[in-house]
Simulated scan of single mutants.
Amino acid sequence: MAKVKICGLTREEDINIVNYYQPDYIGFVFAESKRKVTKEKAARLKRQLDTNIQAVGVFVNTPIQDILDLCNENIIDMIQLHGNEKEDYILELKNKLPHPIIKALRPDSKENIEKSLTLPSDYLLVDTYIEGQFGGSGRTFDWSILPGKAEKIFLAGGLNAGNAEDAILTCRPYCLDVSSGVETDGLKDALKVKAFIDIVRNVTQNIN
Rank of each mutant, 00 (worst) to 15 (best):
L191G: 13
N19Q: 05
I26C: 05
Q133F: 00
A190P: 15
L49E: 10
G148M: 06
H82L: 01
G135I: 02
I53D: 11
E111L: 01
R106C: 02
S121N: 12
S144N: 14
C71L: 10
I145P: 12
P23S: 07
I130D: 05
E165A: 07
P23F: 03
K94D: 11
E92I: 00
L159T: 13
Y123W: 11
V60S: 11
I168E: 07
I79V: 11
F196A: 01
G83S: 07
L91S: 10
A195R: 15
A195L: 08
M1R: 12
D142F: 01
P120C: 02
N95W: 09
N74V: 05
G27L: 03
P107H: 04
S33K: 06
V193M: 09
D24G: 07
Y25Q: 14
Q22L: 09
I79E: 08
I199Y: 03
T204F: 00
S144P: 13
S33N: 10
G135V: 01
D77I: 00
E13S: 14
A104N: 12
K194Q: 14
T62N: 11
L169M: 15
A42W: 06
I76Q: 13
V56H: 08
K5Y: 04
R139C: 01
I79R: 11
K41M: 12
N163W: 06
G27A: 06
K192V: 03
K86R: 09
K96H: 13
